[in-house]
């Protein structure tokens, strides 16, 4: 739903970018487009209305629309932050319930992570509905994507009496897990530290 998303991604200069999402031949170009001068591209994905855009704003200091209904974001937005001494590009995506897309904008997110090269997928989930959300996590892992799980909205979960043990979850899935309350910036530093770990490991593996 975005004036400014659209400001960012459908203005003439980046107009071709939107078009390219839909045709495969330009994979290389797109990758370059998304991550000019940075070594790491990270996509934020997850069900609609779990707080991806809010988290994106916190991480990148830019603004894309955040609102309380599913389907707010319809286009990919990108922003940067220096983490671990490197420029990291974050991509905010439209919400998707599963790897099999049904609406147009779900397709956008799916194509991004399956067909473009993203270095890390941050899967944002709602702590109130963990089982439902893990469905997509499992699909992402099945597709052998590098995943970092953000369990968001722990403030609301707490009010409903739901507690999530992030360490145990990380252990079960063998992926890094951070629990957050993005509206209150709870867990943000921890997330950034985890991303920094990743960036460091990543640049090492490239160097050798």
């Amino acid at each position: 739903m975005d004036c400014h998303d659209c400001h960012q991604s459908c203005q003439p200069k980046s107009h071709n970018l939107g078009g390219k999402l839909f045709n495969f031949g330009s994979k290389k170009l797109l990758k370059k487009n998304f991550s000019q001068g940075s070594t790491t591209t990270i996509a934020l994905v997850g069900s609609p209305n779990v707080g991806k855009s809010l988290l994106f704003n916190l991480l990148t200091g830019t603004y894309v629309t955040v609102s309380n209904y599913p389907g707010t974001t319809v286009e990919i937005a990108k922003g940067n932050r220096i983490i671990g001494g490197e420029k990291v590009t974050f991509l905010d995506t439209p919400g998707m319930y599963s790897l099999i897309p049904i609406t147009e904008e779900e397709n956008v997110a799916r194509n991004l992570i399956l067909n473009q090269k993203v270095d890390l997928v941050i899967h944002v989930v709602d702590a109130k509905h963990l089982a439902k959300m893990l469905n997509l996590t499992l699909q992402l892992l099945e597709a052998k994507l590098p995943v970092l799980l953000v369990v968001n909205m722990i403030d609301e979960a707490k009010k409903l009496g739901i507690w999530v043990d992030e360490n145990q979850l990380a252990h079960r899935l063998s992926i890094p897990v951070v629990s957050m309350a993005a509206v209150k910036k709870v867990g943000l530093q921890k997330l950034i530290a985890k991303v920094a770990d990743y960036v460091r490991a990543n640049s090492l593996s490239i160097a050798y």
Binding site: L130, A131, K132, L134, N135, T137, L138, Q139, E156, K159, L160, G161, I162, W163, V164, D165, Q168, L169, R172, L173
Partner: peptide, 27 residues
């Protein structure tokens, strides 16, 4: 396929969360 995945997701949720005995509602 969805059912199999869901089963596993439920198991994991069971293992890693504490759910209230009685479902609570928001204010």
């Amino acid at each position: 396929i969805a059912q199999a995945r869901h089963q596993l997701a439920m198991e994991i949720e069971q293992d890693v969360t504490i759910q209230p005995h009685q479902q609570r509602a928001f204010k």
